[in-house]
Simulated scan of single mutants.
Amino acid sequence: MKPRRSVLYLPGANERALEKAATLAADALVLDLEDAVAPEAKEAARRRVCETVAAAPYGRREVAVRVNGIGTRWHEADVRAVAEAGPDAVVVPKVGSAEDVRSVVEALAEAGAPEHTAVWAMIETPAAVLRAEEIANASEALTVLVMGTNDLAKELRAEPGPGRAPLLTSLSLCLLAARAAGKSILDGVYNDVRDVAGFEAECVQARRFGFDGKSLIHPSQLEPCNRVFAPSEAEVEHARRVVAAFTDAEARGLGVVTVDGRMVENLHVEQARRVLALAEAMRAEGGH
């Protein structure tokens, strides 16, 4: 299990930001060649990002590169260069179909990308939401869906606001698609970096929905995001008691187990084991 509580976008054209990221407590980093890079800086940013990936300065953090979208004049060159650099993943913006996913997977293979380089698909349009199931099942190389909530809200002509009511249907459909396909899914960004309370509330909402983590635009968002998406000490301790009680009951041939006054079934044990696995993965990655 890879913790993906906090996934921070870094502008590929900003050398200082790329260097500073080595000190940040993000579970994963996305070195961005798309929205964060002006057209005249695309090629220089591509070189810098690929050199950074090849140098591997980020330790055990998961490192992805967001390429420019399919059909743009930079996309094919981005994919070829990134394939050679071999990051953990390639983030593809504005994926609209299963065929989009397969085309990127094929292009990466043709360019000699290592087997460990996965594809993350961004869901940013109404059409993509309605095709989320086929997108999620398009390839085994696709491991993560990423919600692009800003573009999605624009396409819907929605004004999300606190609670994000206009986006909840889309978020739920994509979450269902990801879980049915056995893939991870990340919530979209929160734009107001000064609104700490609003950001934390959105993290809590996303965790309750079942998202694995959230994509971020500023280092100040890392601490609350990591905290909200991590199992608390109380949750970890409860999970240990559930697993221990169930294991003991099985050994004694008992059919009914209670922990803290509540009946425990197989589904609760599976949930508890997932909590313990996530806590262990966080410790392995350095805790933060």
Rank of each mutant, 00 (worst) to 15 (best):
G163M: 03
A136V: 03
T149E: 07
A153Y: 09
E140F: 05
E134H: 01
A153M: 03
T149Y: 01
L156R: 12
G148T: 07
A153T: 00
A141C: 02
P160R: 13
I135M: 04
P162D: 11
R131A: 15
L152P: 05
M147C: 08
P166M: 06
E140A: 09
A132C: 13
G161N: 08
R164E: 14
V144Q: 00
M147P: 01
E133F: 01
P166N: 04
T169N: 15
L145P: 00
V144I: 03
L167S: 09
L152D: 10
E133N: 06
E134T: 04
L168G: 03
R164C: 09
K154W: 15
A153W: 11
V144C: 09
A165P: 14
T143N: 05
I135C: 08
E133S: 10
L156E: 12
L130D: 13
D151K: 07
S170R: 10
A141Q: 13
G163D: 07
T149L: 06
T149C: 01
E155G: 05
N150F: 12
G161T: 02
D151L: 08
V144E: 05
R157F: 15
L167E: 07
E159C: 09
E140S: 11
P162V: 08
A165C: 09
L142C: 01
G163V: 06
E134R: 02
L152S: 07
L142D: 00
R164H: 12
L130G: 03
A153C: 05
V146H: 04
L156A: 13
G161L: 07
D151N: 14
S139M: 00
L142A: 01
P162S: 03
E140I: 01
S170V: 02
N137L: 02
K154A: 15
P160S: 10
L156Y: 15
A132K: 11
S170F: 02
A141N: 10
T169P: 12
E155Q: 13
L130Y: 13
E159Q: 12
R164I: 02
T149Q: 05
N137H: 07
T149R: 09
G148Y: 06
S170L: 03
R157W: 14
P166Q: 07
E159T: 13
S139R: 00
G163S: 10
E134D: 09
E159P: 04
T143L: 05
I135F: 02
P160M: 12
G148N: 08
V146K: 06
A165G: 12
L152I: 08
P160K: 10
V144R: 01
G163Y: 06
A132R: 10
L152K: 13
A136R: 01
S139V: 00
R157I: 11
A132Y: 04
L130V: 10
S139A: 11
E140G: 15
D151C: 11
G148R: 06
L152G: 12
A158N: 08
A136Y: 02
E133I: 00
